[in-house]
């Protein structure tokens, strides 16, 4: 699916130079479920941003589905991203002014898909995450768990091959957190590649592989024995 080779990211201000990522080498196969762990400031979010093409590396290569996208323009990256990558955030990032179904539909809006097909796909995915009965509600009327389910629905409605989840359970209580993890696991079993940043070892256990970052380096990679 993707391969990071000698990838570095340096943030520069006038006086300080901070290396967020330092010669990182990671390979993720299609259909994998990978958890990224590490203390605050270790580079997890930077890594996820680069993998999600919201940011570009300072040096090194990023090969995504056979293409080296490390030096691609924003427009080009945006195009690849919208075809292939779905996002789930800790703070859900739903648009307050749009209803549940409209929020989900938003992911199809920039894909030139006819309205009728959009509606069908939105309904299908709402059923899948169990939020259909809330279709007309606004995000503010939902619980955190429900909001995150909407976010998951939005991440997968476009049949994205890969989902990037940034602490998806960080704002949820344990019951709702588990619910979301089970949803991700189910998606992974259907073939979706999942890369998840998390602080919770329990939730990292859902992944087949855990990458530990520290100070911009990959320190360990643990492969979990198949269940």
């Amino acid at each position: 699916m993707l391969k990071l080779h000698n990838l570095s990211k340096v943030y520069r201000t006038d006086e300080v130079e901070t290396a967020a990522l330092n010669s990182v080498n990671i390979e993720i196969e299609s259909g994998e479920f990978v958890a990224i762990m590490g203390p605050s400031g270790c580079g997890k979010s930077t890594l996820l941003n680069i993998v999600g093409m919201l940011d570009t590396p300072s040096s090194g290569d990023y090969v995504f589905m056979g293409e080296n996208v490390a030096r691609y323009s924003e427009a080009k990256l945006s195009n690849i991203r919208k075809q292939n990558i779905g996002f789930i955030f800790q703070s859900f990032n739903l648009i307050d002014e749009l209803s549940v179904e409209e929020n989900i539909e938003l992911a199809l809006l920039y894909h030139n898909i006819p309205a009728s097909e959009r509606r069908a796909r939105v309904e299908r995915v709402m059923d899948k995450v169990g939020i259909a009965h809330r279709a007309k509600h606004m995000p503010s009327q939902l619980s955190g768990g429900q909001q995150q389910r909407v976010a998951v629905a939005r991440a997968v409605v476009g049949d994205q091959a890969m989902i990037l989840a940034d602490e998806p359970t960080g704002n949820l209580d344990s019951a709702h957190g588990q619910e979301v993890m089970e949803m991700l696991q189910a998606l992974n079993e259907e073939g979706t590649t999942i890369v998840m940043v998390t602080h919770s070892p329990a939730h990292a256990d859902y992944a087949r592989r855990t990458i530990n970052l520290f100070d911009g380096h990959v320190v360990t990679e643990n492969l979990r024995a198949a269940v």
Binding site: G52, R81, N93, A107, Y110, R154
Partner: peptide
Amino acid sequence: REVAVRKVLGAAR
């Protein structure tokens, strides 16, 4: 935030 989400979901400039 709305704009950022829209961009993540594929909105071009």
